[in-house]
Amino acid sequence: MKIELGIITGMAIVTYLPRMIPFILMKDIEIPKKIDRFLSLIPYTILSALIFPGILEASANMSSSVAALATCSIAAIKGVKPTGVVLLGILTVFIFQYF
């Protein structure tokens, strides 16, 4: 429990600092364009790496994962909100259990 408290405190600090420091310091600073471009791509690349290839092992079998990937992708492109996409993903995998 002590180790977990230490890890969570560390997580809290490294999560809070990126939120807080620019909000206080960078209101008047212009970031160089290349660095701005690089930093702006990081969330997309991290999300990409988080999804692939992990999603293929996120459910009991690969076909249900691929089905969820397909339905969730279509829903997301159609503008369905994250919560709706999450519920759709759960439902897709749930239904595929019975095939």
Binding site: I51, I55, S59, L69, S73, P82, I90
Partner: peptide
């Protein structure tokens, strides 16, 4: 249990929901 097993996809569905609109 069958519902709980299905919820492992939730994280990935959330990531897709965040990523796909930007990709499109």
């Amino acid at each position: 249990q069958s519902v709980e097993n299905s919820m492992g996809i939730a994280l990935y569905a959330m990531f897709i929901a965040l990523l796909l609109p930007s990709m499109s």
